[in-house]
Write a protein that binds this DNA or RNA. Structure first.
Length: 727
DNA sequence: AGTTCGCTGAGT
DNA sequence: CTCAGCGAACTG
């Protein structure tokens, strides 16, 4: 950028590793670098890409000083982006180098995209005409440049035909510039047809974008109220101003439907950004975002670190989704960092959700965020009738998990030729296996949580660390044969019960265990939407945004699951999940029903779901959190230590108490509560810090980090947001 | 993060 | 005395 003056003899360079500050490199005679320049520098024995940073180069022993090797021919990282990296680094207590690493994740993109060689028609005619040659000439008669293989393919001939013509001078070789990854969106492609409600909401958002300046709006609309079409109007407004737009989605790999909706409105698909993107595509998207050629990116949380030139709007869809939290290396919540990014850039953010997070609701009620409410569903999408089934009064048959009331409804639905969905957020067959002879329970040898039986695969699997073993026939403790029993239900076991009751029905199980990955899953979902199944049994992946037009019954097998797991957000998560799942029914125009099997029908979450009154839930939950000091109102600077085994967690907690004698509370969590990511990384344990004033915690954590190298290497911190702290 | 350094303890 | 195996330290 023009206000950045160039460095001459030495420059600070942020390298992609956990450096606390930029390193100083010599700038060779005649080389020109400015803050933001992407450079290749020697680091120890290797060469890495780094970013020239701001501020003066700190003086360093000339014998240590090494020269910048190369300045990449690439737009420099903007000043806003550099401030963002510094801010995220401070806020997350991660070294700035590690944050910078996230924006240098496309190493091949730093060199300009190569032009490819192609061919173009000349005035020369071929010596002899053949059928193949005629087709090639016809295909190329538009006068544009073609790639050899592209032309051959279009003409239905082999590329040697093209080569032959080129040798005769019928074609000349030309260089073709890199093709854009996506065409420019057309804001006038298909003007939105909006209801008066939606129109009012869209105008609100549009006004925010047109006013040009920072602001956060919570777009709060029930499932099926058309949130997407409404925020597309804000996207259009930003595009009309010539700005770039970022739309964050929780799990981009499964959001095929979203891309289509975008295309219906803007005529083209947005550029995608997520971890499954092929490397070549990844580079091109990165480069073209940096050059400003890509106008709209739909991406996962890491898209927040793309080097936008003229970012003018961020939309965070499903803002409550836990997938926005990154829980390794740099711990951050992309939703909150999006707000920060917008604050730095001076442009608006839209947070959209049918079930907003409690933090966002609090921010809205305290008027730090604006709030736009969409209350009505589309005309053909009636709300489902929602009821609880009190499992104390209508218990399942012995050995079963489905209440007679639910089975009765399933039978009626099947009779009508409509589909049922049974939801249970637990993979596998049974969460615990034990020996009836001696009482031995199968625990994971690596991390001491229970092994989950997967009967289809004949395996016992630890859902915690991924440890797998074959399910034995005999008890390893007492040797008794055939006395192992499964305790509790998983989706496979529910499927068994369903097949026993409805042998003639087409039953399908959907969980992340299915073989064949995302592609297969998409096919299965399509098949269900086409009516190729009568009863679907699924884990939480069926809760996410798919439309099944003939699905008129949703049964939640265990609505209480997740309410009693020690997570301070247990109620909130359960409310959000149950809202989403029951929202799968009633999008059909047909009369539909949602049934929740629960032992706590009076629990506020069940009451809120059944009454359809989410205000009821939020008011209660916010009051409860204020009272107990849980996030976002926390008053305690408490630590939660979690580790692969309880004994280990306790050991670490003891060490932390010694290192930080002034810590108010150190809680210990066993393996059942420790997140999966814990064991995949290299660290041994992690700290979760809930509540408290951020500044207090930062001081506290820094004191602890200063306490010694033993603690330093192992601490990972995740801080729950104090809603004021990032504005 | 990725690499080298240096200590410990088992092995020739 | 050598060397694998591991944790700690350093990278400009």
């Amino acid at each position: 950028m023009s206000q950045d003056s160039p460095f001459s003899s030495a420059a600070p360079v942020l390298v992609p590793m956990p450096a606390e500050r930029p390193y100083t490199y010599a700038v060779p005679e005649g080389m020109r670098v400015v803050p933001g320049s992407i450079v290749r520098v020697p680091l120890g024995p290797r060469q890495v890409a780094g970013v020239v940073w701001d501020g003066g180069a700190e003086p360093v022993d000339v014998r240590k000083l090494r020269p910048i090797e190369q300045v990449f021919d690439c737009p420099p990282i903007s000043r806003d982006m550099r401030r963002f990296v510094d801010w995220v680094s401070q806020y997350t207590l991660s070294p700035p180098g590690m944050v910078a690493r996230m924006l240098l994740r496309a190493p091949e993109a730093f060199d300009p995209e190569p032009w490819t060689e192609g061919v173009k028609l000349t005035d020369q005619r071929p010596d002899r005409m053949t059928g193949a040659r005629e087709r090639v000439l016809a295909a190329a008669s538009d006068g544009f440049a073609w790639t050899r293989s592209g032309l051959a393919h279009a003409a239905g001939v082999s590329s040697s035909v093209v080569d032959g013509l080129r040798e005769q001078g019928v074609f000349e070789a030309v260089m073709i510039p890199p093709r854009p990854v996506v065409a420019a969106p057309d804001t006038a492609y298909a003007a939105a047809e909006l209801t008066p409600d939606q129109r009012a909401a869209a105008d609100d958002l549009r006004a925010g974008v047109e006013a040009d300046g920072f602001g956060v709006t919570l777009l709060d609309g029930v499932t099926g109220s058309g949130k997407t079409e409404v925020y597309f109007e804000a996207v259009a407004a930003a595009l009309e101003k010539g700005r770039q737009v970022l739309i964050l989605l929780p799990e981009i790999a499964l959001t095929h439907a979203f891309l289509e909706r975008f295309q219906n409105r803007f005529g083209v698909k947005p550029a995608e950004w997520h971890s499954d993107l092929p490397p070549r595509m990844r580079e091109r998207v990165w480069r073209q975002v940096a050059e400003g050629a890509v106008k709209v990116v739909a991406g996962a949380r890491s898209a927040l670190f793309l080097p936008f030139r003229e970012l003018g709007l961020i939309v965070v869809d499903e803002e409550h989704d836990p997938a926005y939290k990154q829980e390794d290396r740099v711990f951050y919540n992309a939703r909150d960092m999006a707000v920060v990014r917008a604050h730095i850039g001076g442009f608006p953010v839209v947070l959209a959700s049918a079930t907003p997070s409690v933090e966002s609701r609090v921010n809205a009620s305290q008027e730090r965020y604006g709030r736009v409410v969409l209350s009505s569903r589309f005309a053909d999408a009636a709300l489902p009738d929602l009821r609880t089934i009190d499992m104390r009064r209508s218990p399942p048959a012995r050995g079963g998990f489905l209440s007679p009331l639910l089975l009765q409804r399933m039978a009626a639905t099947l009779e009508k030729g409509e589909q049922s969905l049974l939801f249970l957020n637990r993979r596998g067959y049974a969460p615990l296996t034990l020996c009836r002879a001696c009482g031995h329970r199968f625990g994971c040898p690596v991390c001491s949580s229970w092994l989950v039986e997967h009967r289809f695969r004949g395996q016992l699997i630890c859902h915690h660390c991924g440890h797998t073993q074959k399910r034995p026939d005999a008890c390893p403790e007492c040797g008794t044969l055939d006395h192992l029993v499964a305790c509790g239900p998983g989706v496979e076991r529910i499927a068994e019960e369903v097949v026993a009751h409805f042998p003639e029905a087409r039953t399908i199980v959907l969980s992340s265990d299915i073989m064949g990955g995302v592609r297969r899953l998409r096919l299965e979902l399509e098949a269900i939407a086409n009516g190729d199944a009568d009863i679907v049994i699924g884990t939480q992946l069926v809760a996410k945004g798919h439309n099944f037009p003939n699905m008129t019954l949703v049964g939640v097998v265990d609505a209480d699951l997740g309410l009693a797991n020690g997570d301070p957000r247990a109620s909130e998560r359960t409310f959000q999940l149950l809202s989403q799942v029951t929202g799968r029914a009633g999008r059909t125009g047909k009369k539909s029903l949602g049934l929740l099997q629960t032992y706590q029908p009076d629990h506020p979450v069940m009451q809120a779901i059944v009454s359809g009154d989410s205000e009821l839930f939020y008011e209660r939950e916010i009051g409860e959190r204020e009272r107990t000091g849980l996030p976002p109102f926390g008053r305690l600077a408490g630590l939660i230590v979690s580790a692969p085994t309880r004994a280990e967690a306790e050991g670490h907690a003891r060490a932390l108490r010694l290192a930080a004698p002034n810590a108010s509370d150190i809680f210990v969590l066993g393996p059942a509560e420790a997140p999966l990511s814990l064991l995949n990384g290299r660290h041994r344990f992690r700290l979760l810090i809930h509540g408290g004033r951020r500044s207090d915690m930062q001081g506290f954590i820094k004191a602890m980090l200063a306490a010694g190298p033993k603690v330093r290497g192992q601490i990972r911190v995740q801080v729950d947001i104090d809603p004021q702290s990032f504005l």
